[in-house]
Structure formats: C-alpha cells, structure tokens
C-alpha cells in the first residue's frame, strides 16, 4: 500500500533519534510523542521547513531532501497542518484568515469564495464573529477556523498537531466529529493526529496508533 507520509530513521537535533514511521494512504492514525516539541519538529520536517540531520522524509510520494523551493510550495498546497494555536495570522481577521489560501492559490470569484468559506465554517460548527482578530477568539474557535481553512484547500494529507489538547470534552468530541467526517469524505485523504497526551486520541476511530519510545501500547 503506498504511503502518504514516511519518516525513515530520522534524526534531528536532540529531539528525534532514528525515528521511523509510515502513514498508509487514506488512513486515520495517531502518533503519541513524549513531548509537544517533538510534534512541532515533525511538522516542520514534513513541511520541509527544517531538514533532518540524518534519515529521510517522504510526503505524498515526494522525497523532501534536495527538493526545490518550488516543489515544496507545490507540495504544501496538498498538505494541511492544524497548529496547536489554530495557525491563524494575527493581523488578519477571521474571514481573511479563512479564505487566504483560496484567494492566494485559486482563481475563484468573490461569490464562490464566500460560499465555500461559509460552508466550511458551518461544517466545523463555528458560530463566532468573522470580523474579529484571532486574539479575541477562544482556543477552540481558533482551531475551528484553522480546520475550516484546511478543509477549503481539500488536502490529500491533513496533520492535526495537538488539535485536541487543551479542549473540553464537548469541544474534543465536536472537533473529532468534524475531522472524521472530513476524513471520510474522500477515500484518498490521510489524517494524522499528533499529540503528547494519549488520552486525547482515545476516542478517535483510528486505523492505526503508533507508540513512540514505548510510551503507548499499539492497538489496531
């Protein structure tokens, strides 16, 4: 089975030593790390924002070592990452944040952007203001907008970096429901949850769960 993401014997700084992992195409999986910094580093590695000291990272069939900036930019358009803070830009309002990738990458009309943007917000259940700056939103709302933005670009691989951490149980359940529904919408889409806290992913209908450094028991 082809893989959406592979880390092969990756060593990077003091955080990752000989880390290997493979995420099969179309699967919903979770990686539980020993600490959040490790997840942040893995995200930087899979986006090509940092290079490993040793080993190789391959995303959607593209080996990142030696890839040109142009290749990396094209690849990032096929991958969405939900950052722990929601990944919103602080000087853009909620709506501007939401539609930024649509306006940047796609030639949609304003009416179409508006329609797609509102539909994505409805899917994640966002009920806050569209004209506020991100600092005035709750953590959950920022992550909702981040997820809606990820949905808009229809990624082949979506990475949830500590997306469920720090949320109430109700918020976690709603976020999981939106993420799973989005995952199942396309049979080709791969979803990966990264967290330092295994409790947060216990309710996910995972295809695969990866223990790291023996801190978690594998269960398929």
């Amino acid at each position: 089975m082809p893989e959406a993401l592979t880390f092969e014997q990756v060593t990077a700084g003091d955080l990752l030593k000989d880390f290997s992992y493979a995420l099969p195409d179309g699967s919903l999986a979770a990686v539980v790390s020993s600490r959040q910094e490790e997840n942040d580093l893995k995200v930087r590695l899979l986006l090509g924002l940092s290079a490993p000291d040793a080993g190789s990272v391959c995303v959607l069939g593209q080996e990142l070592a030696g890839a040109s900036e142009k290749t990396l930019i094209a690849l990032r358009r096929r991958v969405a990452v939900l950052f722990p803070t929601g990944g919103l830009i602080s000087n853009l309002k909620v709506w501007e944040n939401l539609v930024l990738p649509l306006e940047y990458h796609f030639g949609y009309s304003q009416a179409e952007i508006e329609q797609r943007g509102m539909a994505a917000l409805a899917r994640v259940g966002y009920a806050g203001s569209l004209t506020e700056l991100p600092w005035s939103l709750s953590l959950y709302q920022r992550r909702q907008v981040g997820l809606a933005r990820a949905m808009l670009i229809e990624p082949e691989l979506i990475v949830y970096n500590a997306t469920l951490d720090g949320l109430s149980q109700g918020e976690q359940a709603a976020m999981i429901a939106a993420a799973v529904e989005f995952h199942r919408q396309s049979g080709q889409r791969s979803s990966l949850f990264m967290t330092p806290n295994q409790e947060t992913v216990k309710d996910l209908p995972l295809d695969r769960r990866t223990p790291v450094k023996g801190s978690f028991t594998a269960h398929d």
Partner: peptide, 8 residues
C-alpha cells in the same frame, strides 16, 4: 511558518 505551511 503558518503561511509557509499554506504554500504562501
């Protein structure tokens, strides 16, 4: 990094 992750 958020911007770069969006391919921007």
């Amino acid at each position: 990094d958020y911007l770069e992750s969006l391919g921007i």
